[in-house]
């Protein structure tokens, strides 16, 4: 039973993490056609925010609750800054934005190394996340359950925002037809900025969750970002449900592959799986007709 429950539950937690990371990517990619390769470094920024928060709010039980909104704002502002200074100048050049953000990512990584030192910094787990729940032989850590709760809350909040708020309606309008949205008075540039803020902010929250797994280090983002991109590719654009299904599928599949073979081979197998899947559905699981993407 363990060889089934362990990968399933651990994989669900990994999937939840990928979901938080991929939501922001899918949002900005779907709306603006922008692939932000520095998204991983926003995760890193979130993790460092968690570390810094612990220096101020020394009680680990409380600091994580402060760190979550703080990381959202820090990463969100970084995203906004990126949008205003770089991406806004490169509309309709999606491949070029991709490369520019590669440069931004390299830059941020080196910056983190110079500011915080190359040695990673510890982030203490709050006492209410210590421990585990035995489920069919798997000692399911509370921390993993917390990650799943975090992902579900983030997803619900985002879905509610998109569905019920007027801002959400503006986003959906922009995704479906930018020109038409502009004609009816939606200020699409402002919408873009806020989308970028929210999408990057989500990465910050993901970073806090990652910091509970591995502390902080400058290369933290690179370990997750490729999987997050594969999730976006497999999930398709413009609809959250595609990203959700793809995130959990990739997370759980990787865990099972790792259980059957090794963690290295699991990376290889997951990639192969996504390529094969794209043979069946080249546009991903779900896609919304939008203006042509690159």
């Amino acid at each position: 039973m363990d060889s089934f429950t362990t990968p399933l539950l651990a994989g669900t937690a990994t999937g939840a993490l990928l979901l938080i990371a991929a939501l922001g990517l899918a949002l900005t990619f779907g709306q603006m056609g922008v692939i932000n390769m520095a998204h991983g470094e926003f995760l890193m920024a979130g993790a460092y925010t968690a570390f810094l928060t612990q220096q101020v709010v020394t009680n680990a039980d409380v600091s994580i609750l402060v760190a979550l909104p703080a990381a959202f704002v820090v990463a969100g502002l970084l995203g906004l800054l990126l949008e205003v200074t770089v991406i806004a100048w490169m509309y309709r050049r999606p491949l070029d934005t991709l490369l520019v953000t590669v440069g931004v990512g390299l830059f941020l990584q080196q910056l983190a190394k110079d500011v915080f030192g190359a040695q990673g910094d510890p982030v203490r787990t709050p006492s209410w996340l210590e421990g585990n729940l035995p489920v069919f032989g798997y000692h399911w850590p509370y921390r993993q359950m917390f990650t799943i709760v975090l992902a579900v809350v983030a997803l619900a909040a985002l879905a509610a925002l998109l569905k019920y708020s007027s801002f959400g309606r503006q986003i959906r309008a922009t995704v479906q037809n930018r020109d038409l949205a502009e004609t009816v008075g939606v200020r699409t540039r402002a919408v873009d900025r806020i989308t970028f803020f929210v999408g990057s902010g989500l990465a910050g929250i993901g970073g806090v969750a990652v910091s509970l797994i591995s502390g902080t280090n400058p290369r933290l983002g690179t370990a997750y970002i490729i999987s997050a991109f594969l999730v976006v590719v497999a999930g398709g654009l413009g609809q959250l449900k595609g990203t959700v299904i793809a995130a959990f599928a990739v997370g759980i599949a990787t865990s099972f592959f790792a259980d059957w073979t090794s963690a290295s081979m699991a990376q290889v197998a997951t990639f192969a799986l996504v390529v094969v899947f794209l043979q069946l559905r080249p546009q991903g699981l779900f896609t919304v007709r939008s203006r042509g993407l690159a």
Binding site: T6, P7, A10, G11, A13, T14, P141, Q144, V210, I213, S214, R219, L220, T222, A223, S255, A258, D259, S262, A263, S264, Q267
Partner: peptide, 12 residues
């Protein structure tokens, strides 16, 4: 058990 150098998740 082995995990790649840049992979930090040891849960499984």
């Amino acid at each position: 058990e082995y995990v790649p150098l840049d992979d930090d998740d040891w849960t499984t």
